[in-house]
Every structure is written in structure tokens, then in C-alpha cells.
Design a protein around this nucleic acid. Sequence first.
DNA 1: CAATAAATTATCCATATGGTTAATCAAAAC
DNA 2: GTTTTGATTAACCATATGGATAATTTATTG
Lengths: 236, 236
Amino acid sequence: MVAGHRRQHWVDSGAVTAPDITAAPGARERQRRETRNGILNAALAVFAERGFDGARVRDIAAQAGVNHGLIKYYFQNKEQLWKAAVDFLFERLHQQMTEPEEDRCKPRAERVRLWIKRYVRYCAQHPEHARIMVQESIRDSQRLQWAADKHIRGSHQRLLESLPVTLDLRRFPAIDTTTLIYMMNAATQAPFTLAAEIRHLYGRDVNAAQFVDNYADGIFDLFIRPYLAQAREAED
Amino acid sequence: MVAGHRRQHWVDSGAVTAPDITAAPGARERQRRETRNGILNAALAVFAERGFDGARVRDIAAQAGVNHGLIKYYFQNKEQLWKAAVDFLFERLHQQMTEPEEDRCKPRAERVRLWIKRYVRYCAQHPEHARIMVQESIRDSQRLQWAADKHIRGSHQRLLESLPVTLDLRRFPAIDTTTLIYMMNAATQAPFTLAAEIRHLYGRDVNAAQFVDNYADGIFDLFIRPYLAQAREAED
DNA sequence: CAATAAATTATCCATATGGTTAATCAAAAC
DNA sequence: GTTTTGATTAACCATATGGATAATTTATTG
């Protein structure tokens, strides 16, 4: 991505300054942000693919097209890089999940449908998210605790608030709300996390727009529709 | 586990043979099997915790209480060890999931309930399974292809045959059977895969017998009950 | 332009890693 | 008992790894 941005300046010594195209004011900060984000994206990909211990700092740098020394320069070390990448991850999730203004006034069932659709799309676009979280969650590691405290707790709360339906669960007496969140989360992420397996075994592309939207409907039917029906009954 | 099995023979040179306790006929083969299984169990734990690349052969050996050279002796290399471990994993799954003779004559709904319960228990006892599969499934690696062809395909088929109910899915028109398997699988494994996170955030022990059995009921309510109801209607 | 500060690279280092080998030790065969 | 075969260990090796440092290049400022 940043590769190839190294050009010659003042090629001809006789010419005047002849500034680089990138030398526009603020070029530096822009470049800096680009490099940093490039590293973060590469980090997410490699951490998701190999796990924290398996991920090689050199691979992350290579995938970002920069020298691996830069990672120390920007993030001190591998651990800090991981944390920065996870911050980046949840920031993006939060952005993509906030309900657009124009949806607020729609009927409730429709709002829930759209909410689910947004989340399914996020899962399809960013399977690294689920993968990184699963990888850390095997043992109560420092990293897991950090992520749970800084991001997951709040994320769950926000979910319960932003999901425009109350899950009071009379229909599924065996399951409490917390557990249901984990079920729904896992079910939603499943085909995208296992995309390679599904492609290999069944020849299907779960990232096709048709599958994604269809799947959102499936999640809605399975997890939400019963509650809406129940809520309607309660109103009678 | 195998540690400390090194004892002195012929302690007193004057005494007769004085054979080791373990020197019963077949002691060798038994020991061999024990060592091999010890390594496999350790391998599953470490591969699940760190992923293939992050797992250290030395750690696996240490956790099994043997010298790391033994891993070459038994399994040639890390890759072969991984495959042997996955064979071991699916063998165990298959054993634990076969329906006991005495269940065959029970009413269908009850058979399904028991089937689910067995699977939920398996997931609770062996969270490594889901974890190892998720870790491999990010890219269409050699290992994933191998596991998919050798184990997963058959496992899915067996599931569809052994699950004593036909999922013809009129109730969830958006989801096909294949996708439903992935949803159900993921939902079933979810709390046990994320056990550490749940313990940290909500202070709950998902391995408590009560939670496990309760969760099985939840899965049944969510995924199966609708189909049974529908099947009953169809019979009318 | 020159001086300065920031970004980036090339290189180095201690350590850890997967894998290999030659010994050592215990069980089985004689 | 002694020999032979198999199981186990200790020591070794080439390489890769995370991290650190010094040099180099690029942008900004005056």
C-alpha cells in the first residue's frame, strides 16, 4: 500500500526546488496516518490468521509494505500493536453499527431487521473480529482481560440498548439474555468465520451479497421474530 | 503424566532379577500407547491455545512430560502431529455422539433432546475442538483441506443421518440445511469456546453441570422445537 | 537553500524454535 | 544372564524471531 512512495527529489540539480507531489501541506501527517493504518490493517489480518503467538512482526510489516522496525517506532512492541489493532477493530464495529438517523422513526420490526442486517454485513466484511476474539478467549490471559474490560463489556451493553427490542425471553425459558447474546453472536459470525471451510466443502461463497442478505433474514427469523410475535401478543 | 516412571532395576546386585512392577507382559505396548496419547492430549491443548504456528513442539512435550525428541520419534514432525491430534479429536467426537442402544426405541422428540444433550456435553468437555477448527479455517490451508476432506464432510453427513429429525426448514425459508448446521454448531459451541470471557465478564462457570444441561434445553428450544411442531402439524 | 525534526530503513543481537543425532535406558527374546 | 530391539533422553545445529540501534531519507521551518 505505501510501497513505491519513495521518489527522487530535485532530480536535476539546476532546476529550482521542484517539490514532490506529496509535499502538499500536511503531507507528513497524512502519510503518517496512512502508514499507521496500513500497519493496523495488516496486523488484524495476520493476528487473525496466526494468533498472537504465531503472528510474526516481520510478516505484519511485510504485508503493510514497510520495514519491520517501524512497528517498534509506532507501537513500541507486539503487545501494544495488538492492543492498538483491537482498539481499531472495535472503533470500526461501533461506527458501522450506529443506527442511521433516518431509521429511527421506522416501525420497530423494521428497525430490528436493519440492525441485524448491519451486523451480518459487518461480520461478513470483518471475519477477523470474531477470529481474534476466539483466539484470545481460551485462557484468561492479560490480553483477553484487557479487551473484555475495555471493549466487550461496553459493546454488550450498547448492543442491549441499541437493539430496538426487549428480549425478555419468556419463549425460551432455558436461556438468559447474556447467554442469548453469545448464541446469537456466534450464529451470526459462523458462516463468515468458516468461509474457507464452506467454500471448500460446499463450493459456496458466503461473501456474495445474496448470501449475506439472506443470512440476515435467517438470523432474524431464528432469534428475533419469536420475540416480536410475543411482544404483539402481550400488547393485546 | 508419564513423568517419574523411570525406576532403578536390580537395585541390589546380590538379589535375583527383581523385575520392575511395570514389567508385566505387554507393559511395553501399554506404555507406548500411554505416551502417545499423552502427547496427543497435550498437542490438542496447546494447538487450541496457541494455534498451529504459535504452538511450540517443546511446550507440547513438556505438557506431556516427555522429551521433545519423542515427538519426532512418534509423529515425524509438527504437521503430522497436528493431523494425528485431529484424528484423535474426531474419533473421540464420534464415540461420544453415537446413540446408545437403549435410546433407539424412545419417542422421537426425546431422542433429539438426548442427542442435543450429548453434543452440548461434548462441546463443554472439549472446547479445543471448535477452537482448533476455527483457527485453521481462516485460509484454505493444506491442513484445513485435509481436515475437511477426511473428517468434517463425513461428520456433517453423519450428523444429518443420526439427528433423528428431518430439517426440511419450511419455517425458516431463508436458511438452507447446510447453513443451519453451521449456525447450530456455532451456537452450541459458543459459551464453551468463550468460557474465559464469560467467567471474566459475568462471573459464570459455563462448565457447571446445571448450565450445560440448561443450555442443551435452550438449543433444543431454539433450533429443534419449531421443526417438531411443524412435523406434528404436517401429520394432522 | 540550510538546519532541524520526523519518518524510514538496514543491520545487529540475544534468544527461541523445529528438527536431527548419538548416546542411554528399559523391555523382550534368546 | 546375555543379547537384541525398542523407547527415551541430552546435546546439538541452522534458522527465525522480537527487539534495539545507528544510519539514511524525507518533510518542515526559517
